[in-house]
């Protein structure tokens, strides 16, 4: 199996980027199940980082560690630190709602609210009182432009979000995440429910977004990781097996397990 790693990704070296999110001895349990084991990695700023691995390896749990969405699962508990810009978000005195304003999230299936396109984007700015009514139109436009959706919907902002196609809905969800101007965007298998053409658009968008944001992507699609991410973490049963530049992971894996997974001789 061969992978098409694009030029820009080939040139990337981890040294070139600054640390944005650092996991220090991070562990997570769901009840008795030890879902994440001694995670120690640094996600770099302004690149796309992919977490990949087979189902149940913990990649989504790790992603949700960055905006503490694991908190909403009653049986989940964790130890260790997660630092964003040097500050431990697991520490006391951290307001989880402020944290989530800074860390946007896009989910596996497009999940726009049952509201108009406009209201979907205006939801979070209104909630957090960050916008005067007059600025709202501008925020909606900028967010939709940021998600490469503006030209397709600018004449139908009052239509229901459900009138959009699946791929457009997912871009709307990306725009919604951009509406409160986060620094990090988490994407949890954002293309798994989309067709190939919509997938290409979202992948192109990820490459654009990383200019302004730190993008973390969960994917089980190896080709996708090779196409869009500067760095890749390969996970297996709750552990990071290997983490490094995507080029090294795909062309020169250090671990046998990684190599087996990359070459499809897994399981």
């Amino acid at each position: 199996m061969s992978y098409q790693i694009n030029e820009e990704l080939l040139r990337f070296r981890p040294k070139m980027a600054q640390d944005k999110v650092i996991f220090n001895d991070f562990n997570l349990w769901y009840g008795e199940k030890h879902a994440l084991i001694d995670i120690n990695i640094a996600v770099k700023s302004n690149i796309v980082t992919a977490f990949m691995g087979p189902s149940g390896c913990g990649k989504s749990s790790l992603l949700r560690g960055i905006n503490r969405m694991n908190d909403i699962i009653p049986v989940a508990r964790s130890t260790g630190e997660v630092l964003i810009d040097g500050k431990n978000i697991m520490g006391s005195g951290i307001n989880v709602y402020d944290l989530r304003k800074r860390v946007g999230m896009v989910f596996q299936r497009p999940n726009p609210f049952p509201m108009s396109i406009y209201d979907n984007i205006a939801y979070a700015p209104l909630l957090h009182d960050v916008a005067e009514e007059e600025e709202l139109d501008k925020i909606v436009e900028n967010s939709l432009r940021g998600a490469a959706l503006w030209d397709e919907v600018k004449d139908r902002l009052d239509d229901s979000a459900f009138s959009l196609s699946g791929g457009q809905q997912q871009r709307l969800c990306i725009a919604r995440a951009l509406s409160i101007n986060p620094d990090i965007i988490l994407m949890d298998e954002p293309c798994s429910a989309l067709d190939p053409i919509a997938t290409i658009k979202i992948e192109a968008l990820m490459r654009e977004l990383k200019e302004k944001y730190t993008v973390v992507l969960v994917t089980h699609n190896l080709q996708q990781a090779a196409r869009v991410s500067e760095m890749t973490a390969f996970m297996y049963i709750g552990e990071i097996i290997e983490f490094g530049a995507t080029r090294d992971i795909f062309e020169n894996p250090r671990e046998e397990l990684t190599e087996k997974y990359i070459t499809g001789r897994f399981g």
Binding site: Y97, K101, G104, F107, L127
Partner: peptide, 24 residues
């Protein structure tokens, strides 16, 4: 998914209930 989307945008549970869940 609606609840998750709202919480991930920094809404509290009550804000999510009032603005998303009840209307839906």
């Amino acid at each position: 998914e609606y609840r998750a989307a709202s919480l991930a945008l920094g809404a509290t549970k009550w804000q999510t209930i009032v603005n998303v869940v009840i209307p839906a």
